[in-house]
Amino acid sequence: MHQLNGMTGALIGSAIVAIAILTAPLYVDLFQIMQLTVFAAMAVLALSLGFIWGYGGILCFGQTSFFGLGAYAYAVAAINFGDSTPAIALAILIPVIFAALLGYFMIYGGISDVYLGVITLTVSLILFNLVNSTAGDFYKIGDARLGGFNGIPGVPTFNLPGNSGYILSPEQAWMVTGIALILVYLGLRVLIASSFGRIIIAIRENETRAALLGYDPRIYKLITFMIGGAIAGFAGALYVNWGAFVSPTIFALGLSAQIIIWVIIGGRGTLIGPVIGCLLLQWLVTEIGAQQALDANFILGAILIVFVLLVPKGIAPTLRDLVMARLARDKPMTADTTTVKVKT
């Protein structure tokens, strides 16, 4: 019952945000629309880690592997097909297959959580070096030259499905990206409320107990990891669509670290938290960058330390606790304690 209430809230909130997204071009200038578009694409990436880490208990240090593979898959496919629709499908499919293989060896190989972090990080660095060394005419897939460290410029951006002649305007691309973010968020909400979602949370809480009840933790973790790969890959396509460009820096260490910071600051174990963390920090970094007085990495590090020490649960869970405490105090007798369990 309480999950239903939480879901209604999420739907109402999403509807309001959707209206804001669709009307934003009326009162926000093009430069800001472009900026919001990349923020939203990154927020999808934040959701992918927020899901597998917060709910599946899998700390993947190399979520950029799937993001980058999705971005490159999109770029190569879009150049070859001249149509973005199948390219988006490939940007999801290829990272999923990669996540399935990598996840299978790690999870069925029985390596510990710490090593999973190390291996995923290493894989993202390997991909970085691999793609970085693909300069020259030799490295091309169909019509698409991989371009090594220079990356792939001039990638076709999104077109209307079934009509490759109709390229979306920046405003339309923004709407697509913003709505995509909402749909990924709602999709994950539904997933988490389902039996599958409740079982992966149980496995996160106590893998031994789940196994002793007959659940094979490995298959649940693998599927969770693959869903994370799919979402990160999709985020990669959204990202390339924004800049019409992709380069190996997409696999770099800095971004891997940032995603983790977004999730920590926004709040692990929620979905809205990673989105908030991502939007907030990207906005901050942009502001600091514009000022040029302070170093963005320095500020990011300082914020992370402050949060770990003072707001260890992150923004969203802390706000939720505050609101619940407030409600419980205002009407101590009638307060519905079950709502405390609602996860955002």
Partner: peptide, 13 residues
């Protein structure tokens, strides 16, 4: 089915 000596439960649930 087993109840273990050291409780194995889903604490946050």
């Amino acid at each position: 089915g087993i109840k273990t000596q050291v409780p194995n439960v889903f604490n946050a649930m």
